[in-house]
Design a protein around this nucleic acid. Structure first.
Lengths: 150, 150
DNA sequence: TTGCATCCGGTACCTGGGTACAGGCTTACC
DNA sequence: GGTAAGCCTGTACCCAGGTACCGGATGCAA
């Protein structure tokens, strides 16, 4: 019989629906605390680790990067208690970002709809002829671009 | 006096607002046609190249990847004329993607708003206590994620 | 013709979020 | 105590979309 309790790497990975390598990646990135080990050096995770992983994935879906999630988890575990509405504060900032992103995408959507309606066939012709409503002018924030979701 | 007309790499880069290396990158990727050269081998771009670059950037903002843009430009320059509503067709497909993306972001936005309202302070507590409206359930398409805009 | 800015090709590196592989040790069960 | 599955570390690779650096060649004006 096994002399240890806790989850083995692959059990945790399965339970949380992530790749085994991802666990070690998160550990390196400081998202997942270093777990205990067996005498032979194999990782043994506490059951809460599943929750941590679900939290990470949820936060990613909320649009936080892994660095931001790590930060959020740090904040949570260290200055626990008192003047701590840190999560809500960060969520407020992230909300603004998400709203901007939605606005940008809405502009894009409109442009695409107009493209469809106009039945344009040739980008280059349109660009020169001004027949086409393509947004050759800049969008709100032409540089901020990638990174949302899991 | 200069014996050549046309734009030098850095002139084009400046005019289009992109990095000089990006021009060569686009050339490698097949987005930008190989331009003429001086006797010494320096690139000489025609004035239209600026338009091409503006088109590329516009298409990127519409959510097309560089591969898609290359394809779009190919289509445009080769089968020019007849049964060609290719752009509109592709725009229709891309429109669906953009709409899905907006829906996902709207879900995220709602979750963030609720997080802010609830004044949550600790992700881990919330996750365990169910006090918090965080979307631990999956969003619409939890895997399709990145790549829009320039 | 000198001298400096610019450009050349090739290759390496960057970010973000992972994933894969190699070679060796541990665990678990018969 | 044998054997197979599982885990270990370290390192390399993947995607997209670029960006940076190198040593050498060109362009152009004074």
């Amino acid at each position: 019989m096994s002399g240890y309790d806790g989850l083995r790497s692959s059990q945790l990975a399965d339970a949380a629906g992530v790749n085994l390598q991802t666990l070690r990646y998160y550990e390196r990135r400081g998202l997942l605390a270093e777990p205990g080990r067996t005498l032979g050096g194999h990782r043994l995770y506490p059951a809460e680790a599943v929750t941590v992983l679900r939290v990470i994935k949820a936060a990613q879906r909320l649009g936080f990067t892994l660095d931001e999630v790590a930060d959020l988890l740090e904040t949570a575990t260290h200055q626990h208690g008192q003047t701590d509405t840190a999560l809500a504060e960060r969520a407020k900032l992230k909300l603004i970002e998400v709203e901007e992103r939605i606005n940008d995408l809405t502009v894009i959507k409109t442009a695409l709809q107009q493209t469809v309606e106009a039945g344009c066939s040739d980008l280059m012709e349109c660009a020169q002829a001004q027949c086409c409503p393509l947004p050759f002018v800049e969008l709100a924030h032409p540089d901020r671009t990638t990174a949302e979701g899991s």
